[in-house]
C-alpha cells in the first residue's frame, strides 16, 4: 500500500489550479496558432491574434487567461493500492481554495443555487474513479459557465441514424452561436446513462485537441469539417474556424436508449494534470 498524505494532495491541487488558469494547454495553443495561419477572414484573424496574445500575457503577467476561472472540476484517478492519510474531498477543496486565492482568481461559486448569496471558491466538482495500481492522478479543469450554459443532452431512440446524432451536435453548436467564446472545442459523450453521457462529454474535453486522422475518428473528423462550415467564427465574426476540435467519448448503453451529451468549451480550454 502506498500512503499519500492529504496535505500533498492539497498542494498538488493548488498548483494545478494555478497552472491551468495561467498557462493555456499546449495542444489548445497549437490549434489556435494553426487556425490563425489558416484563417483568411480578416476579422477572424484579428480575433485569433488577440486570443493568442492573451495567452502570452496571461502567462507572463500571471493574470488568469479568462476572468471566468470557472467552476473547478477535479478528476481523480485513484489507484486501488493507494491509501490516503486524511480526507480526500476536503484536501481537494482546500487545495482549490488555496490555489484560487494565491492566483487571485475569481470566487465564482454560490453556496445555494436558488438563494445565490455570497461568492466563494468551493466546492469543486469532484469526480473520483478507482483504477488499478498505486498512482493517484489529479486533473483540474476550470470550466467557465459561458460555455457550460450551452450544454445539451438528448436521449435518442436506439434505432436513430448517425445523421440524426450529427444534426443534434451541429444544432447544439449553432445555437451556442457567438455566446460561448468560439472557436470551440466540442466535447461529446455518447452512451451510458443520462448522467454518464454528460460526464463523458466533459471528460472528452480533457483529450488532446487535434484532428484525428485514424479510422476510429471518422465521426469526429466529419463533425469538425461540418461545424467549421457554420461560419460562426472567432468571436462570432464569421470565418473558417468555429471549432478547434471535436472530441468524442463513448460507453456501452442500454438496448432501449442512446444518450448523447454535448459539452462545449470556449477557446480558453484549460486543464492541468499531475500524478502523485
Amino acid at each position: 500500500m502506498k500512503v499519500i498524505p492529504a496535505a500533498k494532495i492539497r498542494n498538488a491541487v493548488s498548483d494545478l489550479c494555478i497552472k491551468a488558469n495561467l498557462s493555456l494547454r499546449k495542444d489548445v495553443l497549437t490549434a489556435l496558432k494553426a487556425a490563425y495561419l489558416k484563417e483568411t477572414a480578416k476579422k477572424a484573424k484579428t480575433a485569433l491574434a488577440a486570443i493568442i496574445k492573451n495567452a502570452a500575457i496571461a502567462k507572463s503577467e500571471k493574470l488568469a487567461i479568462c476572468q471566468d476561472t470557472g467552476m473547478p472540476c477535479v478528476f481523480v484517478e485513484l489507484g486501488s493500492e493507494v491509501k490516503i492519510s486524511g480526507d480526500l474531498n476536503s484536501a481537494i477543496n482546500k487545495g482549490v481554495e488555496a490555489g484560487y486565492r494565491k492566483g487571485y482568481f475569481r470566487n465564482s461559486i454560490v453556496k445555494d443555487p436558488l438563494l445565490r448569496g455570497k461568492s466563494v471558491y468551493v466546492p469543486a466538482m469532484i469526480h473520483i474513479s478507482i483504477t488499478s495500481g498505486s498512482k493517484l492522478k489529479l486533473t483540474v479543469l476550470p470550466k467557465g459557465f459561458g460555455c457550460e450554459n450551452k450544454t445539451q443532452l438528448r436521449m435518442f431512440k436506439p434505432t436513430v441514424g448517425i445523421s440524426e446524432i450529427k444534426k443534434f451536435i451541429i444544432e447544439a453548436v449553432r445555437s451556442a452561436g457567438p455566446d460561448a467564446c468560439p472557436p470551440y472545442v466540442v466535447g461529446v459523450g455518447i452512451g451510458g446513462t443520462a448522467d454518464y453521457a454528460c460526464l463523458l462529454a466533459k471528460k472528452a474535453l480533457l483529450n488532446k485537441v487535434k484532428r484525428q486522422k485514424s479510422k476510429g475518428k471518422k465521426l469526429e473528423n466529419e463533425l469538425f469539417n461540418e461545424l467549421n462550415k457554420l461560419n460562426i467564427g472567432p468571436m462570432g465574426l464569421g470565418g473558417k474556424h468555429t471549432v478547434l476540435g471535436v472530441n468524442i467519448e463513448t460507453y456501452p448503453t442500454h438496448i432501449a436508449g442512446l444518450p448523447v451529451c454535448v459539452n462545449i468549451s470556449c477557446h480558453a480550454l484549460r486543464s492541468a494534470t499531475a500524478a502523485l
Binding site: 492573451n54 488568469a64 487567461i65 467564446c181 480558453a268
Partner: peptide, 25 residues
C-alpha cells in the same frame, strides 16, 4: 475580445467598486 481577460486588463487604468460591494465579483 471574448476570453481575453488578461489582454483587456492592459487597457484599464484604474478600477474601484462603487456599488453593491456585497456582490463581490
Amino acid at each position: 475580445y471574448a476570453g481575453c481577460g488578461a489582454l483587456l486588463a492592459g487597457y484599464v487604468k484604474s478600477a474601484k467598486p462603487v456599488a453593491y460591494r456585497d456582490l463581490g465579483p
